[in-house]
Design a protein around this nucleic acid. Structure first.
Lengths: 188, 188
DNA sequence: CGCCGAGTTGAACTGAATCAAGAAACGTGG
DNA sequence: CCACGTTTCTTGATTCAGTTCAACTCGGCG
């Protein structure tokens, strides 16, 4: 819970009362490794802050599933597409490790947006950052080949390589596990 | 200018005074076809609303330049990466047609965020949408092959195909003009 | 101990890039 | 309004990065 406060205070100062107003809506939740946090077809009810653990984003239907994101400790996580539009999610969130989350419901988050001075500011800032991350990834996918994307990932998000099975890493950079294996041999 | 008001009012109600406060900061600017709006290496000073015309986003350095976005009438346009971080831009914006913009400076936009009730709400909403668009594109690039991406574009953003030279469309979906030409022949 | 999923390696295949050349469209000046 | 040069688009032939299919190794876990 303290980590959420730190997250917010890195963006803007919080008065004690503001923090209390925000904090009241978050609930703790534990999830076991490999459990699914948000199912495909369900509408995302919660925005979650990761106290502990790693979350994988993936689209399950396509013959072989497609992994396209990971989130780590001290970050928010959420099937944003579904959460923001409140329509069923096209993808799933899965616990890659045992996880501890702090969750706030869609409705309670709206209260923070409506009733606090800083809610929309925090929200704007957060989505600016998320947008910039996706922009970087867009360029990475368009501009670089498989080897370059792998080296890029190594530089930009080494925590992924340290903590995630290679088959998911491969999918994340848009190649097969075999191709990733060959790239890694070539490098080391 | 009226279009900016419509843009905002589709998101939230505006009181007359709020609109006046916002409107005072926007300045009109005309740009000729093929001119560069924001140069690589420059820090983006303005957030611009397009009254008329089409803007192309591209990275010029790579041997053959990489086109990765287009913006159209009644949308905001901006080298967001540079604007948000206020560091030099890695890419350029170019006028694909004669263009009329309404521009607000970085500093003046901060005034709107700080001094109006609705600024951060409008900002949050706008970046939520931008983020969702990039998310869709990420999936498109990872999940589909060239032909599927082209057909996807046809469905999702037909205005691009109607108004943009094919060599830029090719780059946008991550293939060469030759490959796009073959895909198009195959379809029609 | 034996099983199962993750990772590796090899061989054949394929979608898209590259190289090269011609056709069509576009714009600019006479 | 036409002529010319330039750019865009198309088409063909070849190459190549990455996929697919298949077999094998390794490490963890019941």
């Amino acid at each position: 819970m303290g980590h959420i406060r730190e997250y917010c205070e890195r963006i803007t100062e919080l008065k004690e009362k503001e923090w209390e107003f925000i904090a009241q809506y978050f609930n703790r939740k534990e999830i076991n490794k490999n459990q699914i946090i948000t199912k495909q077809g369900e509408t995302e009810k919660f925005l979650s802050f990761i106290e502990k653990g790693i979350v994988r984003f993936y689209i399950p239907d396509s013959e072989s599933e497609l992994t396209f994101n990971f989130t780590f400790e001290k970050e928010f996580t959420c099937a944003y597409d579904s959460f923001l539009t409140q329509i069923p999610s096209k993808y799933e969130l899965q616990a890659l490790t045992d996880i501890v989350l702090w969750q706030i419901s869609y409705e309670d988050l709206q209260k923070i947006y409506e009733q606090t001075r800083i809610g929309n500011y925090l929200g704007r800032f957060t989505f600016e950052k998320l947008f910039l991350n996706k922009s970087k990834r867009e360029i990475s996918l368009l501009k670089y080949n498989a080897k370059e994307r792998y080296l890029n990932l190594f530089k930009e998000r080494p925590e992924i390589l340290k903590n995630v099975p290679l088959k998911y890493v491969a999918s994340y950079i848009g190649i097969t596990p075999q191709a990733l294996s060959r790239i890694r041999r070539q490098i080391s």
